[in-house]
Design a protein around this nucleic acid. Sequence first.
DNA 1: CTTTTATGAATGAAGG
DNA 2: CCTTCATTCATAAAAG
Lengths: 213, 213
Amino acid sequence: MMEWDKQEQQQQHEEQHNENGNGNGNGGGVIYVKVMTDEQMEVLRKQIAVYGSICEQLVEMHKALTAQQDLAGVRLGNLYCDTLMTSNGHKITARQRWTPTPVQLQILERIFDKGNGTPSKQKIKEITTELSQHGPISETNVYNWFQNRRARSKRKQLVTGSNNAESEVETEVESPKEKKTKPEFHSQQIPASRTEDICFQSPEISSELHSLE
Amino acid sequence: MMEWDKQEQQQQHEEQHNENGNGNGNGGGVIYVKVMTDEQMEVLRKQIAVYGSICEQLVEMHKALTAQQDLAGVRLGNLYCDTLMTSNGHKITARQRWTPTPVQLQILERIFDKGNGTPSKQKIKEITTELSQHGPISETNVYNWFQNRRARSKRKQLVTGSNNAESEVETEVESPKEKKTKPEFHSQQIPASRTEDICFQSPEISSELHSLE
DNA sequence: CTTTTATGAATGAAGG
DNA sequence: CCTTCATTCATAAAAG
């Protein structure tokens, strides 16, 4: 956005320059002013409209997805949900660890990103209340979550930072025995702040953007 | 989106109005004039095109994601997007996991057997340095390895020890005996509301939308 | 190729 | 806060 703005201004300047110096066919002292025809306008409008519709589609998909998640309850992955009772009433096992539902996680994440890393006692209570609408949860859970989240994000940062220019040469001089037959490209854990980068790095796209600058 | 669209149309109408009838202060009978050069127009168009393409990719990714979720377990909250799409549809896979080379494993094992089950941070660093001579590795990898190693060896021990094994029913995996020295008051949630309901509770889809604002 | 197993990594909770 | 532990998830490797 910013880029765009700046760009436009620059362009404008250029044109004024032209106007000043070499008299081009663009009228004498007038401040240039070109007209955009209705056709052009329409083209633009349509294009943007398409963009809008795609976005709406996205939103819909998100909704559907989230809703589905919520309905399905906790992760589909582990379906041994909770308490099971034998016929004689003997309790077998209950799940002993809280697992945030996707929605809960989403909300927590949002709050966490909101900056203030000090969820006071009162805050915790509020959050818990809100989250309890999306699944079983307790204040302790929320507290722990923030605690862990902060600590881990911090450590992550540290690791990425300390990851100096490790050449990590090909010192595969080892293993007289069986080396992996294949290249074994294993990029290790790529801590790469998971919060952002991730999905939006398509070389193509970014280059396109750059070309516009 | 829609709002915006509508707005623009209105604006257009307004201007046409102006043009037609009431001459406003905008010079005599002049036709509405939009100030925008062809270049600017082009820039705008391109920019929009880029956004559009980004959106399309997003949609694609979402589709892929959803499909994937249908197949395997979920993982919504922290989706680690292991596939990135280039604009031409090729998949780039990321996120692999570290695999110790035989030599590394050997060394690790040796250190582990050395008794001290407390690889301090400093220790970890040293070990990592040494192991990096034999293949790609990070401190995190080493840390995890020890964590896992200890936990698993412990569990093994436990299982072999408590070999009473009533089997009877598959029920549980571990004996509540020496698992913890203390009462282990787990799961503070779930008020154990009798019968069903278990851990699911009605999904309030609507409210989550609010929370997204 | 599909299923199973082994194990690296993620994360909720407890202790200090 | 920070560290540690226990449990769970996901996937590379092995087995079929």
